[in-house]
Design a protein around this nucleic acid. Sequence first.
DNA 1: GCCAACGTTGGC
DNA 2: GCCAACGTTGGC
Length: 160
Amino acid sequence: MAQNYWILKSEPSVFSIEDLASRPDQTEGWDGVRNYQARNYLKDGMNKGDAILYYHSSIKEPAIVGLCSVVREAYPDTSAWNPDSAYHDPKSIPEKPIWFQVDIQLKEIFTYPVYLRDLKKNPLFQDMILLKRGNRLSVLPASATHFHAILKMAGIKNKR
DNA sequence: GCCAACGTTGGC
DNA sequence: GCCAACGTTGGC
């Protein structure tokens, strides 16, 4: 099965890539996705081993800041049926979960983040979904071309 | 802090 | 099932 490439967005004030780095095994369940399209990407698109670009949003200099991978495929997001959770959604119940999460593991924090500003300057990324006006999805697919170009910009040697 | 874009909700 | 109102996202 071909490897897929994804972009996950997070506000660093909520959960940053440094937070991920501090987790046991540098692994965390990616819960709280409450958008159907994003959920479908998570649930139906993501396979174990897929590569993830980690994006910091809603800050002065939005940027792709690191590389992760999917270490566990979709399973029910239990925060949905926890009334104390900010992600509580009474429509989702254990017998019939609506929302799902995957587990991701940090591979690398970029020494040189790839800034949104720089992606916009480069014609190669013209049609990238991340740059589309009005795009608000927190889970996005990325093309192999864009993925590899971004790693190159980050100074990461192609490996694996 | 502003505002455009978009998704969701709810009245009809 | 339409659509206005509202809430949220996220770049600037």
